[in-house]
Write a protein that binds this DNA or RNA. Structure first.
Length: 208
DNA sequence: CCCTGATTCGC
DNA sequence: GCGAATCAGG
C-alpha cells in the first residue's frame, strides 16, 4: 500500500480527530501503526492540535552514538495555525458514554444461591458500592446490568486484567469480584471505572 | 500484558 | 519516503 492522496487525507483527518495510530492503521488497512506514526511525523503533524499538553520536549537520549551529522537545521517550528479545521460536528467527546454496555439478554444466574443479607443492605463497611455518591440512575442501572454479566471471580482468580470491583458482601458467600476485562491501566472494567473515580464534577476549566 | 506515540536507520 | 524495530511511557 502506498500513501495515496486519499489515504493521507484520511490519516490527517483521523489524527486530527484524536484517533490513535493503531486505529488509523486499522482503518486504512495495509499499514501498521508504525507506518502511520512514521507518516505522521514526516508530514510534520506530530503535535495534535496546539491545545493541551503534548509538550514532548527534546529527548537527549544518546541511544548509541550521536550521528556526526553536522547539519540538521531542523527549523521544525510547528505551532501550525491549523488553517481549516474540519467541521468538527461531534467533538471527540462522548467517549465515555455512560452506557457502554447494551442490554444483555439472559444473564442466567448460574449460582442462585440463597442470599440472606440483601446486597444493598446498609450494613457495615460495604465495598465501594455506588450507592453513597451521587451517580446518575442511568449509570447506576448500567452498572447493575454489567454486574449481571460479571465473571464472579474469587480473590485468587483476579489478575491484572480483571476488574477488581467487589460485588456483594464480603462477609457472605455471595461475594465475588466483577472480573470483566479492565480498562487499560485501571483496576476496574469500564462500567466500574465510571463509578469508581468519577467525582470532580465536570471539567470546568477551559483553555484560554 | 495491554496500549500509546517517538525515534532510529536500513532500505 | 517508507516502516520495522526499538525505545519510552501509561
Amino acid at each position: 500500500m502506498s500513501w495515496t492522496d486519499e489515504r493521507v487525507e484520511t490519516l490527517k483527518r483521523m489524527w486530527a480527530e484524536g484517533q490513535s495510530a493503531s486505529q488509523i492503521a486499522k482503518e486504512l488497512g495495509g499499514v501498521t501503526r508504525n507506518a502511520v506514526i512514521g507518516k505522521v511525523h514526516r508530514l510534520g503533524l506530530s503535535n495534535r492540535a496546539g491545545g493541551v499538553a503534548t509538550p514532548a520536549p527534546a529527548k537527549p537520549v544518546p541511544t548509541r552514538e550521536k550521528p556526526t551529522r553536522t547539519d540538521a537545521p531542523e527549523p521544525r517550528v510547528e505551532a501550525a495555525p491549523t488553517p481549516e479545521k474540519k467541521p468538527v460536528e461531534p467533538r471527540p467527546a462522548a467517549a465515555a458514554a455512560p452506557q457502554p454496555v447494551p442490554p444483555s439478554p439472559a444473564p442466567t444466574p448460574a449460582v442462585p444461591a440463597p442470599r440472606k443479607p440483601v446486597l444493598v443492605t446498609a450494613g457495615q463497611p460495604l465495598p465501594p458500592q455506588p450507592s453513597a455518591n451521587e451517580i446518575s440512575p442511568e449509570t447506576l442501572a448500567s452498572v447493575r446490568e454489567v454486574e449481571k454479566t460479571a465473571r464472579k471471580l474469587t480473590l485468587m482468580e483476579l489478575t491484572e486484567r480483571t476488574c477488581k470491583w467487589p460485588i456483594g458482601d464480603p462477609a457472605t458467600p455471595d461475594f465475588w469480584f466483577c472480573g470483566l476485562p479492565v480498562q487499560q491501566g485501571k483496576p476496574y472494567c469500564e462500567a466500574h471505572v465510571t463509578v469508581a473515580f468519577q467525582p470532580m464534577s465536570a471539567r470546568r476549566d477551559r483553555k484560554r
